[in-house]
């Protein structure tokens, strides 16, 4: 459908606020970041030394590699656990049971929390001295894992917190996807002889695949970028860098250690990596995603 505008200037004027915002808040800072990544910058930004690609080559250190691995492991865990658990929850929430509205609300509301609040809750709940979960764990196993000193356990705790926060988002989308599958298809499969498991694998899951792809990408982006607040509140990248994901390291180097040039280089690398990952996901998806 085409519209004819009464004046030639009007469309540009109407678009201009959005364009201005995108340029000012996205394009220009990105270009600045690219520019600064070739410099060493003083904290107050008053001095710049040109260092060519030093900032980038300095990334080839064990610390950065560690961040990389932590990020991949963490995001992988969030994506896998998140999608699997949330799909199961959505299937459960898709039934006509009494009180289903209440269960759904209970599943969805954590998404409304800010990452900082979610991080605080989980930090408190797992606090080795005073946390409720820590208490139960010590009752059950006799040991009290301390996420301030135990790297792997810290990763587990932030994975739980991050995944928990996304449950609402994932469940809503999966529910919506499930509800677009016509009941008759499931019934036809039932008559054809498919039990619940086969019905899920052969009918529900393939028809859910566009939604699954969407959530795969969103959860990946979430794990790479949006967990920053959670980690800042809980572990600040520790202990011993065990939870120092790429975006957190970037934040710390840039805003706390005030190494602006170095952090800019990291942001470029991170951007390139995530862009590449997303493209890969789309490519790979062509094979298993079915669009109606």
């Amino acid at each position: 459908m085409q519209s004819k505008f009464p004046s030639r200037l009007l469309p540009y004027l109407l678009l201009s606020p959005s364009i201005v915002i995108v340029i000012v808040f996205l394009i220009i800072p990105s270009l600045q970041s690219l520019y600064l990544s070739f410099f060493r910058v003083s904290p107050f930004g008053d001095r710049l030394i040109y260092v060519a690609i030093d900032n980038f080559t300095n990334l080839l250190t064990p610390d950065y590699l560690n961040s990389f691995i932590v990020t991949v492991v963490f995001t992988g865990a969030v994506v896998v656990v998140g999608l699997v658990v949330c799909l199961a929850l959505a299937l459960a929430a898709n039934q006509k049971v009494a009180g289903i509205g209440l269960y759904r609300t209970g599943l969805i509301w954590p998404y409304a929390l800010s990452p900082a609040v979610a991080g605080t809750i989980w930090a408190l709940v797992f606090d080795p001295s005073t946390g409720a979960f820590s208490y139960f764990i010590s009752l059950a196993s006799g040991a009290m894992p301390n996420w301030r000193t135990n790297g792997p356990f810290a990763v587990v705790v932030i994975t739980l917190a991050a995944t928990w926060k996304m449950v609402g988002y994932n469940v809503i989308f999966f529910l919506a996807g499930l509800q677009t599958i016509p009941r008759e298809l499931i019934e036809a499969a039932e008559i054809d002889g498919a039990g619940p498991l086969k019905r899920f694998w052969n009918i529900t899951f393939p028809l859910l695949s566009p939604m699954t792809l969407f959530l795969l990408i969103m959860n990946t982006l979430y794990g790479f970028f949006q967990v920053f607040g959670l980690i800042d509140v809980m572990t600040e990248g520790g202990p011993a860098r065990a939870t120092e994901v790429l975006v957190y390291k970037l934040y710390y180097d840039g805003f706390i250690s005030l190494k602006t040039g170095y952090a800019s280089a990291q942001s470029i690398v991170l951007f390139a990596f995530v862009a590449g990952l997303t493209l890969l996901q789309f490519r790979f998806a062509k094979r298993w995603v079915f669009y109606q």
């Binding site: 019934e187 008559i191 028809l207």
Partner: peptide, 17 residues
């Protein structure tokens, strides 16, 4: 599935994928 029946639905219910 064990009743040895087959059904044709109004909306055909073909598996789209």
């Amino acid at each position: 599935k064990d009743r040895d029946i087959a059904m044709v639905f109004q909306n055909y219910a073909l598996y789209p994928h």
